[in-house]
């Protein structure tokens, strides 16, 4: 489990990007890390990976400080950054140089992921494929790495719609029971069917909302209504209003992630 406790972070002497972050990323879950532009999603992922150090507070994995970047910690974390560069290399050469560092790396999983996304092992120059294809290759490598935690920053960026669906399918197919994925994205709706937990960062660097999908479905009811009366949050729509209200029936309903996100950002779910 990765735990962030009272984490504050700022770049240099600039303004505080993240404040009082308290979050747990438990084993065997898929977390959606959501937030507006500049809310600190990438920064939080880097803190969880140990590429940045908190100015205050602690980030730990199973009790070990992540910023210490111990070998055991690094073997359990795979960070897929956005805007990465492969450089001019073939896929086989890239794998020859990198895969040996990951003790649970699976070539079978990699081949399956590449096959499903319409790619193969014979990619002579990773620098010359499209952005979407680079993301597919990198996602496949991340999934095949077999690390306990996959931290993915905008993994579906540049992918076409069918490929995004395949990515979600592959993640569900190959993530093992104790593996955790933390996926930062702007494409809120796309991930709603695979996420088990949601973390929403507010615009002032705090956590605006966090909870499991089961918990959210039990606490809130999502639907449409002619009136917005009694709703925690509402948005006008052709049928009247899309609303979120407290779930008093105790029955779980379908969650609307986009509504949840908008409500959380506006502080309506406190």
């Amino acid at each position: 489990m990765i735990r962030a406790e009272n984490v504050y972070f700022r770049y240099g002497n600039g303004k505080t990007v993240l404040r009082d972050i308290n979050a747990e990323f438990r084993n065997g879950r898929i977390y959606g890390l959501l937030g507006m532009n500049g809310s600190g999603k990438t920064t939080l992922l880097k803190l969880l990976a140990g590429l940045l150090f908190p100015r205050q507070g602690r980030v730990t994995m199973d009790g070990n400080d992540i910023p210490a970047r111990g070998i055991g910690t690094l073997m359990e974390i795979f960070l897929m950054q956005s805007g990465f560069r492969f450089g001019r290399t073939s896929l086989k050469q890239f794998l020859r140089l990198h895969s040996g560092f990951y003790p649970h790396f699976s070539m079978d999983i990699l081949e399956d992921c590449l096959r499903e996304t319409g790619l193969g092992m014979d990619i002579p120059d990773l620098d010359r494929i499209s952005l979407g294809e680079k993301q597919k290759v990198m996602s496949a490598i991340a999934i095949a790495s077999g690390t306990g935690f996959l931290l993915m920053d905008e993994p579906s960026e540049g992918m076409d719609i069918p490929s995004r669906k395949i990515f979600r399918k592959l993640l569900l197919r190959h993530l093992k029971e104790k593996q955790t994925a933390v996926i930062s994205t702007h494409h809120v709706e796309e991930l709603s069917d695979i996420l088990s937990d949601i973390v929403i960062l507010g615009s002032n660097g705090d956590i605006a909302f966090a909870g499991s999908v089961e918990d959210i479905s039990e606490r809130f009811a999502f639907g449409t209504s002619r009136s917005a009366e009694g709703a925690l949050y509402s948005e006008p729509c052709p049928e009247g209003y899309r609303i979120i209200r407290r779930n008093d029936s105790g029955e779980s309903g379908e969650m609307n992630l986009e509504m949840l996100f908008n409500a959380a950002i506006k502080g309506k779910l406190q």
């Binding site: 990976a49 140990g50 070998i71 690094l74 974390i77 795979f78 990465f84 560069r85 560092f101």
Partner: peptide, 12 residues
């Protein structure tokens, strides 16, 4: 900007 940042490579 490396695909897998060197600092994230599992080595001490």
């Amino acid at each position: 900007r490396r695909a897998i940042g060197r600092m994230m490579i599992p080595a001490t």
